[in-house]
Amino acid sequence: MGRIQLENVTKSFGETQVIPPLNLTIEDGEFAVFVGPSGCGKSTLLRLIAGLEDTTSGNISIDGEDMTQVSPSKRGLAMVFQTYALYPHMTVRKNIAFPMRMAGLSDAEQEKRIMAAAESLNLVDYLDRKPAQLSGGQRQRVAIGRAIVRDPKAFLFDEPLSNLDAALRVGMRIEITEMHARMGTTMIYVTHDQVEAMTMADKIVVLQAGVIEQVGSPLDLYRNPRNLFVAGFIGSPKMNLIEGSEATKHNATTIGIRPEHIDVVPDSGTWSGKVGVAEHLGSDTFFHVHETGLTETLTVRAVGDVALKHGDTIHLSPRLEELHRFDAQGMRLS
């Protein structure tokens, strides 16, 4: 079990309020991802849930039990830190055993769980090493191992993969997602990488300046961004946001169209322009198009390898059914 509920939670550091009143429920077994730009309060929110920071006001409950005043060690949550935070003076085995030893588990039970964790995380050969003798990826596995052995109500991850190289990151991303599918434990995962958010989450919480901009499933956010911020934040490459007369044509202050929803047509599309940078990925081609008569540079995603290069003329047609419209306040118009 692990249903986490935040009611009117606020957090101030001195005079500055970093989290204005905030309400959020994370259901039992859910994989929730907090995303947002740097400094928006993701870590602070996670640390409030963990109990590592005190709330300024409001309540946090886990499984219906008020935990606002409960110390982190008694909340039954496990956390994986960005910097791994392994105990440098203990071997991998002792690191993993530590929370179980604190919980007073028998030696036999500890050993059983250590072996199970070590096998699932490929750590069997490293159990007697110290953290300093491990690679970044291995250290991260140990940190995860230390979290899983104690069977927590929920896992909290604070950008656990941001210190790893790209290839390792993709591998670990899949491992954590599989771990969630296997165990079904609630997980809260903080990241500023929206690809991680899209691929891992059941539920994405988009934050800006401590305020929840939108909560929803990845596809929900992709298809129906509630406002300009979410529209620009979710999706890669970013949605094209166009203002001015082109937007007025659609009765909006701003219109948004995703790069994958603009078709490259042979001649005379809605917009014509010059190819600036062409990024050929093989499976896709990204074009950055200038001189379309719009002030904004358009990003276009064409499927497959399209043989256009720098300086060529390109004709484009947006799929009107995929167009997003926003009002002067940046809110979505239905």
Binding site: A50, G51, L52, S71, P72, S73, K74, L77, A78, M79, F81, T83, A85, L86, Y87, P88, F98, P99, M102, A103, R146, R150
Partner: peptide, 17 residues
């Protein structure tokens, strides 16, 4: 590093521990 101390708290150790 503060995180190591915090990791201890998350792992259920008392202040004296």
């Amino acid at each position: 590093p503060k995180e190591i101390i915090e990791a201890g708290q998350m792992d259920g150790v008392s202040t004296w521990g």
